[in-house]
């Protein structure tokens, strides 16, 4: 690339290889040395890339950070950043797959509950940053005949999410963030699995436990299944009360009938 002037795109691709893959073969030759090795100059950008993204992951996964310690967290983050660098400048959205990296990381394999805690933290982070949306107006739903109500497809509030964990991820997450060592010590790690609902309420993000069948019914509704088929897939005896609770808590942002949006 040194034999001729690189195009802007060629140069930017070379700098990406330098920053992401630590390969200065091309970018280094384009940089004015001025008494300092091009690699030392490029190091400044490499360091910022790694530290900004590690910090973004730390903000989304504070309990994981405390559970494994700063050094181990940085190693896991580095692995994740190498494999899946961000695609957008919205770093709140970065790190969705970090729990999967943790799940196959030998250094933390002894903490079997860690991926579950991480998945919960991601759902909480997503709920914190989700766009605002007006909750579904129940009165508009009530205007439909009972037969039509069975055909309703709900749109979940952007902050609403569901997490299944093999271990008591919610109790571990809470006691770690509250630095309550006594509570943490009292948790039976084998007391799973858990079925969790995460949602941003006016007062903050709420994490609540559901029964497996209630979770499966809610999952079907969040996926946009019509009410009747959600009930058929997950015959939940408390469906009516649960639906009323979801509606009252603002966990739906709209609904449609026969594929026609009416939100």
């Amino acid at each position: 690339m040194n034999a001729r002037v690189p195009s802007l795109l060629e140069l930017q691709r070379a700098v990406r290889r330098s920053v992401v893959a630590r390969d200065d073969a091309e970018a280094g030759g384009c940089v004015v040395a001025g008494g300092i090795e091009p690699a030392a100059r490029l190091d400044i950008y490499r360091n910022t890339f790694a530290s900004v993204l590690t910090n973004a992951l730390r903000l989304s996964y504070p309990a994981v950070h405390r559970l494994v310690g700063a050094e181990c967290f940085e190693g896991a983050a580095r692995l994740f950043i190498d494999e899946q660098p961000p695609q957008s400048a919205c770093l709140d959205e970065y790190g969705a797959n970090f729990p999967e990296t943790l799940a196959r990381l030998e250094a933390v394999a002894a903490l079997a509950y860690l991926p579950g805690v991480a998945r919960l933290e991601w759902a909480v982070s997503r709920a914190l940053h989700a766009p605002d949306a007006e909750p579904l107006d129940v009165a508009r739903l009530a205007a439909f005949a009972e037969n039509d109500q069975a055909r309703v497809r709900f749109a979940p509030h952007p902050s609403a999410g569901l997490v299944r964990a093999d271990h008591p991820a919610d109790a571990i997450w809470r006691s770690v963030l509250e630095q309550d060592d006594a509570a943490l010590a009292a948790i039976d790690p084998a007391s799973g699995p858990l079925w969790l609902l995460v949602h941003r309420a006016a007062t903050g993000v709420e994490v609540s436990r559901l029964s497996e069948i209630a979770w499966r019914f809610t999952e079907a509704l969040f996926a946009g299944c019509p009410l009747r088929s959600a009930l058929e897939d997950a015959p939940c005896v408390e469906a009516e009360a649960l639906l009323a609770e979801h509606l009252a808590a603002g966990r739906f942002a709209g609904f449609s009938l026969d594929d026609t949006a009416i939100s």
Binding site: L9, Q12, R13, V15, R16, V19, V20, Y45, T48, F49, V52, L53, P85, P86, Q87, S88, A89, L91
Partner: peptide, 8 residues
């Protein structure tokens, strides 16, 4: 560049 955000 190329769909990768270089965070700087």
């Amino acid at each position: 560049v190329g769909g990768t955000y270089l965070a700087d």
